[in-house]
């Protein structure tokens, strides 16, 4: 049976969840990696694809094409700003300025790809850049508030988790914002906007599974905690074998849906 615990945000709620993490530690074996790769190979597409928890949550729903906006940029900028702030002990605004200037200089020096965040930021007016900064600052403050509510060591994740299933021409992307680590356990914290829907648990399980496969050692985090600050809710999924299996099944289901849709389109044309 899979695990999903819900609690309300309150002082001490996050610590209480972290401290009650399961003691057992799982490891992904090379057989399990091979089995996953084989399953993805069976439903591969002629081109490369990337799957993530959002696609799991949406199921067969049509995803709108991605475009940069203050909303889509805030997590990248806000996380980087908090990481910089914690490393250099500067104000949140100064940290964010550093991050934005870094992106702008990357675009100006020709190191940014077309369609990247740096290129988009470079095209904005000062008022638009201020709006982007405002949204990223909100995100950074929320993330910092969550990080400070954890008693133990907590760090902003360097990057999201990526696992390349080479034979299946598939890259899995697992989002993670904060990582709380003690000698015995690792907890992934994921911050989300809005209110959790019915598929929020499946999304968390997918992120947990991808994180586990992306670890070279195969160590599975003891738990993943999803924080919905807008709704004042915390959802926790434990790093149990059942949850990992369910996470992998959900990712494969999305891959299968894409596979079926692609070949139906090909047959129709």
């Amino acid at each position: 049976m899979t695990s999903l615990t819900t609690s309300f945000v309150s002082p001490g709620a996050m610590n209480s969840l972290i401290n009650s993490a399961p003691a057992e530690t799982l490891e992904i074996t090379s057989e399990q990696r091979s089995a996953l790769a084989e399953r993805f190979r069976q439903v591969s597409l002629p081109h490369h694809r990337r799957l993530d928890a959002w696609m799991v949550e949406r199921g067969a729903g049509v995803l709108t094409p991605f475009r940069w906006s203050p909303t889509t940029a805030r997590r990248v900028l806000g996380n980087a700003a908090l990481r910089y702030r914690l490393a250099h002990q500067v104000s949140a605004m100064a940290a964010l300025d550093e991050v934005v200037v870094d992106h702008l200089s990357r675009a100006a020096s020709g190191y940014a790809r077309r369609g990247s965040l740096s290129t988009w930021l470079c095209e904005l007016s000062t008022a638009q850049l201020a709006l982007v900064t405002s949204d990223a600052l909100n995100w950074s403050h929320s993330l910092e508030e969550i990080a400070r509510s954890v008693d133990g060591a907590v760090e902003v994740a360097d990057s999201d988790a990526y696992y390349d299933v080479a034979t299946g021409r598939t890259t899995l992307r697992g989002r993670r914002d904060l990582i709380s680590t003690t000698s015995e356990q690792r907890t992934i914290i994921r911050v989300r906007a809005g209110a959790p829907g019915r598929t929020a648990g499946a999304g968390l399980r997918a992120d947990l599974t991808i994180d586990a496969f992306s670890q070279p050692t195969g160590h599975v985090a003891q738990q993943i905690i999803g924080v919905w600050p807008d709704a004042g809710l915390l959802l926790r999924v434990e790093g149990s074998l059942e949850d990992l299996k369910a996470g992998a099944r959900d990712l494969l289901r999305v891959a299968n849906l894409q596979h079926t849709a692609y070949f139906q389109r090909a047959l129709a044309s």
Binding site: S125, T126, A127, Q128, A130, L131, V132, T133
Partner: peptide, 22 residues
Amino acid sequence: RLLSVGYSFSNPFEDLLAAWRC
């Protein structure tokens, strides 16, 4: 939102319109 990050307006209407469109 713009004032909260210390933005100084040159032409409020055009600045806000650009921000909203973005």
